[in-house]
């Protein structure tokens, strides 16, 4: 554990709190992508299956349980008490409802989940059920924010807490990269290319958002995507 990873984890933890605080405070989930939240729930459920058979630290265990339960709560709220404020029209991916012309699966399954799973079958750290699901969760996490970013792109502007949420998740990823660099130079056998590549891809997806978020903060102006 180093300060970069700890800060990253704390930002990740804060991101859930920001989102939940915002949804409760405004009694609304407008601007939040249910697709991204469901993808994150799948990510955590697949990756933290090891809660049942391997123990790293009390810290890891508690964070894992928190990540799963917080995301499950957010998804549950979006499907129940805040359902009426869910902006389904802006949470549609290209190809939604028209996969192969008629099949029911949506863009998120065809373009995100299936490719990630296929990649996990090819590139993993061991060809066994848990390792494949673990690799799948790493790839899926890398792209899980896409529906949320697409939603932001459609609406062009976001509500302050939603932006803060995206910022926290993006910053957490950025700090993880610094953590890997630190670990690479301080730990003898530290080597995890699968995680590094996915993590860098994941962080790059936030680059555009970071740029416009920074411009908005700097100018004290409203966050506005171009185009």
């Amino acid at each position: 554990m180093n300060i970069f990873r700890l800060s990253g984890d704390m930002l990740h933890l804060i991101s859930f709190l920001v989102l939940m605080y915002r949804m409760r405070g405004q009694r609304s989930c407008r601007g939040v992508s249910l697709k991204s939240q469901i993808l994150f729930l799948i990510v955590f459920c697949c990756r933290y299956l090891d809660l049942f058979f391997s123990f790293v630290s009390l810290y890891n265990t508690m964070m894992k349980i928190f990540f799963i339960s917080a995301t499950a709560t957010i998804v549950y709220w979006m499907l129940t008490k805040y359902r009426s404020s869910y902006d389904m029209d802006n949470d549609k991916l290209h190809g939604d409802g028209s996969f192969m012309g008629h099949l029911p699966p949506h863009g998120v399954l065809g373009y995100i989940i299936v490719p990630c799973f296929l990649l996990a079958l090819i590139w993993n750290e061991g060809f066994e059920a848990f390792e494949i699901l673990w690799a799948f969760s790493i790839y899926l996490e890398a792209v899980a924010i896409l529906p949320q970013l697409f939603m932001l792109q459609k609406t062009k502007e976001g509500e302050a807490f939603t932006l803060l949420y995206i910022f926290c998740v993006g910053a957490y990823r950025g700090l993880y990269i610094i953590n890997w660099i630190y670990r690479y130079f301080t730990e003898k056998h530290y080597w995890q290319p699968l995680v590094w590549v996915s993590g860098v891809v994941q962080t790059l997806l936030y680059a555009d958002f970071f740029y416009y978020y920074w411009i908005a903060l700097r100018d004290g102006a409203k966050f506005q995507l171009p185009g």
């Binding site: 984890d9 990740h12 790293v56 673990w134 530290y190």
Partner: peptide
Amino acid sequence: TDKLTGHDEL
């Protein structure tokens, strides 16, 4: 595969 690191991150 070198699994010395394991899945120790979140």
